[in-house]
């Protein structure tokens, strides 16, 4: 494992921790899209089907369990926790799941490396992860007041994706026969979706003003 991959995983982990901190400690999920969180839960559930069949490393297994556990518990908190759920911006978070899930499923059935259940599910999870942030970005744009933790959460997620791209570039030059178009292209699309957010995030940081996305 190279440094970019490890830094990417740690950034991903940090984003989840920031979100759990907000939900668990402040008892608020204001500005957080339940739709995006549900999509991530679906992403991990379909990608980690190999959890009990293929052992890669203790690190790999632990991280998979953490991402699965945290994504489902975040969904549970926003839906059912009696205090947290009150802060959920239900009326603003209107993105439809199936607009993203159905095209991704269709695309995974058409474009995959091998037409087996596990492989199609794995490909589906890649496509879905690429666009799962969209409901969250739409919600950010609608929310006039983006609090620090929400801004940091989205920033860390975007940073994790950018680091994964560096990881692929590194692996391409250091490992033999390393070509993975499906992963690379969906990963690139995913990272590009953050470009706009990054721009405004750095602007607000540079000018020391509160983060706000233009409508």
């Amino acid at each position: 494992m190279n440094i970019f991959r490890f830094a990417g995983d740690m950034t991903h982990l940090a984003s989840v921790l920031v979100l759990l901190l907000k939900i668990h400690t402040i008892k608020s999920c204001a500005g957080i899209s339940l739709k995006t969180q549900e999509l991530y839960a679906l992403v991990f559930a379909t990608r980690y089907l190999d959890l009990f069949t293929d052992y890669i490393s203790l690190y790999n297994t632990l991280m998979k369990l953490i991402f699965l556990g945290s994504s489902f518990s975040i969904v549970w908190y926003i839906r059912y926790h009696k205090i947290v759920r009150r802060s959920y911006d239900k009326d603003q978070d209107t993105f439809r799941h199936y607009f993203l899930v159905l095209p991704c499923l269709l695309l995974a059935l058409l474009i995959n490396e091998k037409f087996t259940f596990r492989e199609v599910m794995w490909t589906f999870s890649l496509y879905l992860e690429a666009v799962a942030i969209l409901p969250q970005l739409v919600l950010l744009q609608r929310t006039r007041n983006i609090d620090n933790l929400t801004g940091q959460y989205v920033f860390l997620l975007g940073a994790y994706r950018a680091l994964y791209i560096l990881n692929w570039i590194y692996r391409y030059f250091t490992e033999p026969h390393y070509v993975h178009w499906i992963t690379w292209i969906s990963g690139l699309v995913q990272t590009l979706l953050y470009a706009d957010f990054f721009y405004y995030y750095f602007q607000s940081w540079k000018n020391n003003v509160k983060l706000e996305l233009p409508a």
């Binding site: 995983d9 293929d54 890669i56 490393s57 692996r171 026969h177 993975h180 992963t183």
Partner: peptide, 10 residues
């Protein structure tokens, strides 16, 4: 490769 190397990623 038995499993594709990309599958060792998260």
């Amino acid at each position: 490769y038995e499993t594709s190397p990309i599958k060792d990623e998260l």
